[in-house]
Design a protein around this nucleic acid. Structure first.
Lengths: 196, 196
DNA sequence: ACATTATCCGAGCAATGACTCAGTTTTTCT
DNA sequence: AGAAAAACTGAGTCATTGCTCGGATAATGT
C-alpha cells in the first residue's frame, strides 16, 4: 500500500517554470547520450544548471522526472494525431507520417523512452494518454479499412510501431520507410478485413 | 581503449560447471521477477547458493553474467532454427512456431532480455549468434517467397518478432498468434515480392 | 523600505552495490 | 597419505547515488 509519489510544489513564477522545464530537458539530453547508467539525479541537476535541492522541490523522486518527460512527449504526439483526426482522404498515410516525424525528431530519445515505458508503471495520467493515442490510431485505421476486430487493430498498431522504431534505431533505412509501413499495414489488414 | 572484460577462470571440475550454470540461472530467475532493480551481484550469488567471491571467479563483472545468459538463450533458439533449415514444406509456419515456442517457454525472461540486449553491447560472440539467427530466418523466408530485397527480409523479421514479443508480454492474445503472424508476413512479402 | 513568500543552493547522510582478498574446504594427482 | 591445485567463503572496501535540510538569494506585496 505504498502511496503514489505526491507531486511537490507546482512552479508559479516564470523562473520556476523554466527551471522545471530545464530539469525535464536535461533528463532527455542525458537519455540521448545512450548511456542509461548516467541518468542520476545529481547529473540531471548539473546538466539543468540547478542544484539537487531545487530538483527535489518539483519532483518527489527520480521516477517522477521520467514520468514528466514521457508526458511531455506524448502530449506532442497526441495533439498531432488529434489534428489529423478530422483530416481528409489519406488518413493512413498521414497517421504514419506523424509517427515517423515524431520518432525522427529525436530518435535516440524516442528509443530510450520506449524501453523506460516498458519497464516502469507510468502513473494514471500517462496511461490515459497512451490509451488515447492507441484509440485514435485505431479509429483512423478503422476509417480506412472498415470495422475490424480490436485485436487486429492492435496488431496493426504494433506492426507500425515496430517498424518505425526499428528505423529510428538505425536498423532499417529511413528512406522508403513510409511506403514500407503502409504496405505492411495494408497487407495485414486487407487479409483480415472483409471489404475492399 | 578500455580492454574488453577478460573471461576469468573456466570451470573444469563438475562442481564448478554446475556453479557457473547456477549463477546464470539465478540471474534468469531474478529477471523473471520483473524487478530489474533487483538484479545485483549479491542477490544473484545468494539465489545461486554461492558466495559473491565465487561468482567473481567465473565472471569478470556483472555485465558478463548477462552476456552468458543471452548466449545460453540464443544457443537454444539457434539450434532449433538450424533444425528446420532442412525441413520440408511449411518452412514459414515452422519458423514462426519455433519463435513462438521460444518466446513462450519463459515469456517474462524473454521480455526482460529483449530490453537488455537493446541497451548493452553484448560482445563479438553473441553478436555473431544474433547475425546467424537473422540470416537463417531470412533464408527461410526467401525459400518461401523467392529472392527478396534484404531490407524487405529484415522488415519481415522485425514484424514477426514484434508480434511474438507483444504476445509474450501479454499485449496480444496467444490464441491465433501463429495465424496472425503468418498473415502479416504473407501480406507484406506478397506485396513486395514479384512472384506468387 | 520592510516583510513575506517563493526559489534556489550544495554539503553531506544513509543506503546500496560492485568488487576484493585472506583464508578455508574440496578435489585431484602421485 | 600428503601435497598441490581448484573451488569456495563472506566480511569488508570504496564508489555511487537518491535524497534531506538549514540556510542564502530573489521576487512580490504593502
Amino acid at each position: 500500500m505504498s502511496a503514489a509519489p505526491q507531486a511537490r510544489k507546482q512552479p508559479t513564477q516564470r523562473r520556476a517554470i523554466e527551471t522545471f522545464a530545464a530539469i525535464v530537458e536535461a533528463a532527455a539530453r542525458i537519455l540521448e547520450t545512450g548511456d542509461a547508467e548516467a541518468l542520476n539525479t545529481n547529473r540531471i541537476a548539473e546538466r539543468a544548471g540547478v542544484s539537487v535541492g531545487t530538483l527535489y522541490q518539483y519532483f518527489p523522486d527520480k521516477h517522477a522526472i521520467l514520468v514528466a518527460l514521457i508526458r511531455r512527449e506524448r502530449e506532442v504526439l497526441l495533439s498531432e494525431l488529434r489534428a489529423i483526426q478530422d483530416g481528409g482522404e489519406e488518413v493512413l498515410q498521414q497517421m504514419v507520417d506523424v509517427s515517423i516525424r515524431h520518432q525522427f525528431a529525436r530518435p535516440r530519445l524516442a528509443a530510450a523512452l520506449e524501453h523506460i515505458e516498458a519497464s516502469f508503471p507510468m502513473g494514471e495520467e500517462a496511461d490515459e494518454m497512451a490509451r488515447e493515442i492507441a484509440s485514435i490510431s485505431s479509429g483512423l485505421l478503422a476509417r480506412r479499412f472498415g470495422p475490424l476486430d480490436p485485436t487486429d487493430l492492435l496488431t496493426a498498431v504494433i506492426i507500425a510501431r515496430s517498424l518505425v522504431n526499428a528505423a529510428g534505431e538505425g536498423l532499417l533505412p529511413e528512406a522508403g520507410l513510409r511506403e514500407r509501413v503502409v504496405k505492411a499495414l495494408e497487407g495485414y489488414l486487407r487479409a483480415v478485413s472483409s471489404r475492399d
